[in-house]
Amino acid sequence: MTIAPMAQPTEPTSAPSPTPVSRKPRLATIWLDGCSGCHMSFLDQDELLITLAARADLVYSPIVDTKAFPENVDITLVEGAIGNAEDLAKILHIRRNTRLLVSLGDCAVTGNVSAMRNSFGVIPILERVYHEPALLHPATPQTDLPALRERVCPLHEVVHVDLFVPGCPPNAATIAYCLDALLEGRMPDLSQHTRFGK
């Protein structure tokens, strides 16, 4: 399967930009309900990160200071499942602004460990964590916090996903292989590279 090569954003930006428009593909990474392990595996590309920085602009990620998810992102790697109301709002926003959305790791692909709370339900979990008699001021924290979803679900249950990369986490070589193919405009064949729980 082939996909169109990465082009610069096709939609005009609202205001003319003072700096020349970058011709590099725009890459984003985000963590939702996961353990950060998939992001650590991304960083495990080690010095390949230097090459990556030359080939793509990292426009949004927990390791950069961009606070709002930008428009016209070419590739977004998403770690983690949808666990609370905020995760859902974010993934919908990301989908609208991303050309190729990648489910990175088993939590994003299947729900994995993040979804293990589903068989208990939210109330028993909150009771267990915040209402033990040994605690001082036992109560469920609610002020300024997003509500937990009753059911944690994988990304493709709520948005269209373009590529699934299983693994817990997928190893750095697999991530590098995927990015290389995507940046060259190919869809990677992952059958030889990773599997669930790897």
Binding site: G83, M116, R117, S119, I125, R128, D144, L145, L148
Partner: peptide, 12 residues
């Protein structure tokens, strides 16, 4: 400092 997520390992 508000920490906004919870996963519930103690329970599951």
């Amino acid at each position: 400092l508000h920490v906004n997520q919870l996963r519930g390992f103690e329970q599951f």
